[in-house]
Each structure stands twice: as structure tokens, then as C-alpha cells.
Amino acid sequence: MTTILIAVAALLLLAAVFGALLGFASEKFKVEGDPIVEQIDALLPQTQCGQCGHPGCLPYAEAIANGEDHNKCPPGGEQTVIDLSELLGREVLTLDADEDADVGIKKVAYIREDECIGCTKCIQACPVDAILGAAKLMHTVITDECTGCDLCVEPCPVDCIDMLEVKPTLGTWTWHKPEGIGLRSDTSVPVNVIPVVNL
């Protein structure tokens, strides 16, 4: 009987000690802030487009941290969903985007300056202040800053904003991945017979 009591007492003592230790540790090494939100935010593409239903990427990151689905970011595409699933240990969901939406194609806004009337509505709509201009003077998109969120297209009263696909330049072009094992690509370009004189 005493043995049992001793055993129980010892267990209780151990439980108390470890409980105190854990409690102390959780207080002592408390993590400030909510790093998971920052980690999620870092994975989001920062287009600030609001297609997820939140007024920016950070609010959506907060929503995801609070349990919202992590598949509502069309600009991020499948890769972002996968990355988020990995980070959060959640199931990989299919991207919540329109079937025909051209997910993954990078675009920037372009203002047809001849038609711009200088209403400043797009400037107000731009979430990253990437449109320059003043009232009654034409506006211009700073291409480098544009995230391609297309929030400026809707407010334009004269529909002079186009979303143009970003074409590769000599600076941004990269080699494509080879076709892979057992496959070959057509690598030949037709060339006319060498002209002798003027080009």
C-alpha cells in the first residue's frame, strides 16, 4: 500500500515540477507578436489586389492565420498555395480562381496617355502608389512598381487603362528548362539563303 502511495506521490511531484517548468518556459520564452502572420505575408505575392476579399496581402495573411482558406490568391498561383500548405501544415487546396483566368501571367497596367483625362481616380485606387499624375494632367504607371493588381482599371471613367502582359526583355529572359528524358524539342529556326547584299 505504501509503495503505491509513494509511487503516486512521486508521480504527482514529478507532474508538479514539470508543470512548473513548462509554465516558466512558456512565460520566459514567450514569442512576441505573431510571426506566423509575417511568414504567411512573406509568401504572398504582395500585389495588394484584393482578389482574396481582403484589402491587401497583410490582412489576408492575418485571415489565413485565423483559419481562412489559403487558396484565394490568384496572383500567387498554385505555387503560393503549395508553399502556404507547407508552411501551415494544411491540405493543399485547389486554387480558388476563375477557370479562364490567366493565372500566372504577369501583367502591368498601362495608361493610354492620349486618352487619359487626368481624373486621378486610378491614383486613388492604386494600392502601391504606382501611378503618377495630377488632376487634369495625364497619369503614368511606374511599371517597376506596378503589381498588376488591375484595381485601377475599374475606376477609370474613360477606360484608358490596359493590363498588358509583361514581355521578357534581354535583361529578364532566361533559358527554359530542357524538355527532359527521352524528349527533344524542335530547336531549328528557318533561315533564308544568305543574302549577298543589302539587308
Partner: peptide
């Protein structure tokens, strides 16, 4: 790297605007 830089810049600008 370029994308990351751009995203960081966008985030910065968005926060400044906010």
C-alpha cells in the same frame, strides 16, 4: 530574387500608403 525584391517594395509602398 527580383520577384522578392519587388514584393518587398510593394509591401513597403502599400504600408506607406495605408
Amino acid at each position: 530574387v527580383a520577384e522578392q525584391n519587388k514584393a518587398d517594395k510593394a509591401r513597403e509602398r502599400f504600408e506607406a500608403r495605408q
